[in-house]
Each structure stands twice: as C-alpha cells, then as structure tokens.
Design a binder for these strands. Structure first.
Length: 597
RNA sequence: GAGGGUGUAGCGAAGCUGGUUAUCGCGACGGCCUGUCACGCCGUAGAUCGCGGGUUCGAGUCCCGUCACUCUCGCCA
C-alpha cells in the first residue's frame, strides 16, 4: 500500500449531531461558503448528504491558517478535525447539522476550481443553456441532487413493488427493426450491410408483446425510448418509461395494479396519500367537461354545452354555426379578488383560445340581481335567468363562450381558456390528482392522407361490441385503451392488446397497410401470434414526467441528469457533432446537405 | 414547418419619448475584521450592449436582416 493520497472521510457532511461531540472526524467535500473573519474562518463544507460548518480558530498553526486562506468556492477538500457542540446562541436551526461544528486541525486541498461561470444554488435564474453547458456544476446544486435522489427513490420503489408481485424485469434490444408508423425513428447504420439500418425503439411495444407469447406472464422494464420529434419542456428525444405488460388480464386488472403501485410509491417516496382508486372519465366526457383528454382536476371550471341556449339567442354568429351542425360551449370564470376582468384580460383569454383554433371568444359579465352585461349579453336579453342558472354563475363572474364548427376544436380551445383561468385566478389546489381516461376512439381520420389511422397504436384491442363494424364505421369504434393523467399531464398510456392474427390483420388493413406491407413490417409479430398468444395488456408510465410533477417542476430537464435543450443539442458535449470521413466510409454513408442559398 | 418572447461585465438585472463617462446586485481580485451562517466594511478590475447592415449630427434605444436560446402551435402510434 502506497502513501495515502488523501485523508479519506470517516463520515459525511450531513450526518453529525451533538451526539458526536468530541469525536475526531475526517470530512471530504466542496467549499460551499467561506466566511473569513480575519483570525476565524467559517467554511461550509458540502457533499451530497448535507453541509457541515468547519471552523478554523485563532489558535490555528501556520499551515492550517495558510490552507484556510487559500480556499476558494468549490475547492474540493479534506478536513480533519474534532466535532464540538456550538454554544447555544450559535446554533443554526435551519441546518440539519446546525447544533455542531467541526474544529479543523488539518485542511488538505484535493483539487482546485477557477472562478465559477455561474453561482451554484443561486436558484433557477441562471439561463438553462449555461447550466447545461456546465452541468457538472449544476448537478452540485442541492436542487438537482434532491431531484435525482427523488428519481432514484421513485424507480427503486417501483422495482420493489413490481418484483414483489412476480414481475420480471427483462431488457429488450435498443437496436431494432425500424417500424416508422408513429414518430420518426432514430436510425443506426449497419456497417456489415450497406444501406441497412437498425432503429432505436420508440417503445419496447412489440418485444413486450412477444415476451407475453413467450410465457413471461408479467414483465416490466425501466426502458429508454427514442423519438425523433421536436422537443418541448415536457418532451425529450430520449426519455424513460416504466414499460409493463401482463398476460391473462382485462383492463381493470391493469388499472388497479397501477393504482396500487402509485399509491404505494407516493406513500413511500413522498409520504403522500393517494386515493385507493382513481377517478375514471371516458374520453368523450373528459373532452366535453374539461375540453381535454388530459384534464387538470385540481380545479373546477367545467365546460357546459350551451348550444340550445345559443340557438335561442339573437346572436347570428352562434345561430349560423349551430345551423351548420356546429357547437357552442361555455365556461364560467369565477369572480376574483386579484384579477380584473378587463378588456385586456379578456383579450389574453381569447388569444389562448385562438391558438387552438377558436375564431373568437364571446363573453358576458354577471352583475347584481341576475343581470348580464357587456360582450354578447345583449343577444341574450330575456334569457338572463336561464343563462346564469345553467352556468351556475354568481355576481362578479364572467361567462366565456366558444362556438366552432368542429367539436374537438371547440373543446380544446375552451380548455386552453380553462387552464389559463385556473392559473391566473389561482384556482389550482395543491397536491396530486390522478384520473383515468378510458374508452378512447381506436381510429382517427387522417385528413391529409384521406385514410384512417390508429389513434394510439395498431395493437390495441377494439371493444367487443364494435368488432362487426370495424370496417364499416371506424370512426365510432372505441378501443380498450386507457391513459393515466396527473395534474393535467398525460403520464401513462396503455391498452389491452390484440392477440389474434386475423383481427390484427383487419386493423392493419383499416390503417392502410395491405397484407404484404404488414407482413414485411410486422411479420415477426404476426408469426409469433400464430403460436398461441395469451390475452394480454399493459401500460407505459413516463418516468421523467411523473418525477417532474412530483418535484413540482415544469420542465423534464430538471429531473434528467444530462438533458438536451429544445434545439436537440447538448451544450456540454456539443452533440450532435460531425464525424470523420473514415467513419462515414465504414458505414457506406454519403451526407447530402440540405440546399440553402 | 409557423408564431411570440429574450439576448447589456463571469452570473442576474436596470437603462423612459435616441443625447455626452452605460447603472445596480452577486461573483472575481486586493485590503481590514474573533462567532459568522446569503457575515460585514473599504477599494480595484471587468461590457466592441448577440452578430451584420441601415436611418440619424448622434443608436444599447428606431428600422431591416441574421444567429442563439426559450415558450407555444404543428408534430409527438
């Protein structure tokens, strides 16, 4: 054994209490703060576990004094010293270790640090790009450490819960056959086969289904998924899902497993009590009541269908749209102490609605004695009582209406108004509100292409009663599909799967895949399904998103160690980057740059 | 692919209807300080105002272009 490189820690910076009074300890960590009072120094030493105050007293020898004087923020050091209780008036109740301090006898500088590009832990104000460029410094912040710990705890709790219920964690390949019917695939060129490519999985969907055919019965995986689409605050090119599949189950088995799982996990990780079951809304009800298939149930402001009233009004715009089979829906914005329903504010609500395709936002204010004023109120003269009663409105409230030819646009634009009201009027309750959205349509009409496609994916089971009318009326078919929604975010999506070759082929055909193309793309799945597949179903909760919500963040970046920015670039390592010609040659690739003058 | 926002010392910001030396806080550097814990006090350095062009006697400020970041729509089975 050679001479010791450094004095190795005997404990961490978060663990000492007055019970350790008098103990000789060695701490390793970073200089979090350094207060020099001349002949007394206070050094806050930080590691992942906490912060401990180190004191260099006036009796320090020359060497110790020199070391203390040379310390800069974020130097990595080893401190040897003795734990002592702080005098009563010096106790810091804010600190976990605030009752003690370590009187330094020796300070070793393990590594130094130049002036920092930004101040660690100065909160969220630093531009994110800079934080990402120096992510190793950003990760030292207590916020990042806390969030990544939360993420770890969350995943560990999931693993334990599922393992205890006979689930097997099985890895599926991340270089697979490209089946680009959903998002764009990321491709990996094959060196051995010029012109051939692997794809990174958008999800382990087909493999987990084949695991069911393989008799694995209950499978899960903390799976990385890749989708080559534009990033967002809650969307990355690569993200992590709890991928899960079970054999011999029906929908409610999957739902109650998830309710049990998250009930357990939220209790264990955050000491938060979830209800034993989550509210269930059909897709149609969710859209009609909240305008969204991922409603935030932490506040009310429900949408009401007011087409019948609008038809009786004298407002020609409404009557015209209704005459053409359109829709008129409304929400009631409750009176607010802090937000004035000014023209300017109404315009900002209208702008929110217009983003989702509303042509305008009609409004009227509720005055005293059940009166209506402003906006379109004059067209509802004589109908005041009916309007106010239907909307459940009270004095000081404002009624906001959207009319649109298209049901979905009418709903979603009003949902945007609802969400803005929730935020602006401070209506959103604290906590975690889960709900299931069930009975989704199986197919969606592709306007551009002029064909039907799977609303979720092509492997979901149609509900029994629609089996005879799949081809004749695809738009009406509901699937055995379910989404889990948390605080207005879609956090999981799943379904009971098809396990019948002929039914699967019918779905492919409806989605514009002839038998030959289907065979070419999904032949391996169809082959597997010829060999007695069990009925099965599953779900895939998004880990990043859930942890983000649990951490009360609005960006997924805050719970990912090394995220890419919205331009799909990692400022730290500069990926994506160009490669050597030699690498391209080996892969038989020629780069064709886009033409731009 | 489209629209909105932002870009001023290392970081975070101020800079009004264009006007002479571009402010402030934090950080850095130097000095003082025996109990702080966001220590305090004194001092110093540090900015071609994202970049390019234009209007003007004069541009951080107005106009055009461009780049970067960011939010949103589209997209995301």
């Amino acid at each position: 054994m050679s001479e010791e490189l450094f004095s190795q820690r005997t404990t961490t910076c978060g663990s000492l209490t007055k019970a350790n009074d008098g103990a000789r300890v060695i701490l390793n960590g970073w200089v979090h703060r350094n207060r020099n009072h001349g002949s007394v120094h206070f050094i806050n030493l930080r590691d992942r576990y906490g912060i401990t105050q180190v004191v260099v007293d006036d009796d320090a020898d020359e060497e110790l004094e020199a070391a203390a004087n040379s310390l800069k923020l974020e130097f990595c050091i080893a401190v040897t010293g003795v734990v002592r209780k702080r005098p009563a008036e010096m106790v810091n109740p804010e600190m976990k270790t605030g009752e003690i301090e370590v009187k330094a006898e020796k300070i070793e500088i393990l590594s130094t640090c130049p002036a920092l590009p930004f101040q660690i832990d100065d909160g969220l104000k630093t531009k994110e790009d800079l934080r990402l460029k120096y992510r190793y410094l950003d990760l030292r912040s207590q916020g990042m450490q806390k969030r990544l710990k939360l993420r770890h705890d969350f995943i560990l709790s999931i693993r334990n819960y599922l393992s205890a219920r006979d689930f097997l964690e099985i890895e599926t390949p991340t270089m697979i056959k490209s089946t680009p019917e959903g998002a764009r695939d990321f491709l990996v060129p094959s060196r051995h086969y010029p012109g051939k490519f692997y794809a990174l999985p958008q999800s382990p969907q087909l493999y987990k289904q084949i695991l069911m055919v393989g008799g694995m019965d209950k499978y899960f995986q903390i799976a990385r998924c890749y989708r080559d689409e534009d990033a967002r605050g809650d969307r990355q090119l690569e993200f992590t899902q709890l991928d899960l599949e079970m054999s011999f189950v029906k929908r409610d088995d999957v739902l109650s497993l998830m309710e049990g799982l998250f009930g357990h996990v939220f209790k264990e990780v955050m000491d938060y009590d979830l209800p034993a079951t989550f509210r269930r809304l059909t897709y149609a009800d969710a859209m009609n009541t909240y305008g969204s298939d991922k409603p935030d149930l932490r506040f009310g402001v429900e949408i009401k269908d007011v087409a019948d009233m609008a038809a009786k009004s004298s407002f020609s715009t409404f009557k015209e749209i209704i005459g053409k089979g359109g829709f008129v829906k409304a929400v009631c914005a409750p009176h607010s102490e802090t937000v004035d329903f000014s023209r300017k504010y109404i315009t900002s609500l209208e702008d929110a609605a217009k983003v989702y395709g509303a042509h305008g936002l009609a409004w009227m204010k509720v005055g005293e004695n059940k009166s209506l004023s402003g906006g379109v109120s004059k067209f509802f003269e004589g109908m005041e009582d009916e309007v106010i009663e239907r909307m459940g409105a009270a004095e000081g409230d404002m009624i906001l209406l959207v009319a649109h030819q298209d049901w979905k646009r009418c709903c979603t634009s009003l949902s945007a108004v609802r969400n803005k009201l929730g935020k602006d009027l401070n209506l959103i309750r604290k906590g975690f509100e889960f709900c299931w959205i069930i009975d989704f349509p199986l197919f969606e009409y592709n306007e551009e292409g002029g064909f039907w496609e799977a609303a979720h994916h092509m492997f979901s089971m149609p509900q029994q009663e629609y089996l005879d009318t799949l081809e004749s009326d695809p738009g009406r078919v509901l699937g055995d599909l379910y989404d889990l929604v948390l605080n207005g975010y879609e956090v999981a999506s799943g379904s009971i799967r098809i396990h019948d070759v002929e039914l699967q082929k019918r779905i492919f055909r409806i989605c514009n895949f002839d038998d030959e193309t289907a065979e070419q793309r999904f032949g391996f799945l169809l082959n597997a399904f010829r060999y007695s597949p069990p009925p099965h179903g599953g779900i895939a909760p998004g880990i990043d998103r859930m942890v983000m919500i649990m951490a009360e963040e609005t960006s997924i970046h805050e719970v990912i160690a090394f995220p890419k920015n919205t331009a799909a670039v990692s400022p730290m390592d500069d990926s994506p980057s160009e490669v050597d010609q030699k690498q391209l040659d080996e892969l038989h690739l020629i780069v064709k740059y886009p033409e731009k003058p």
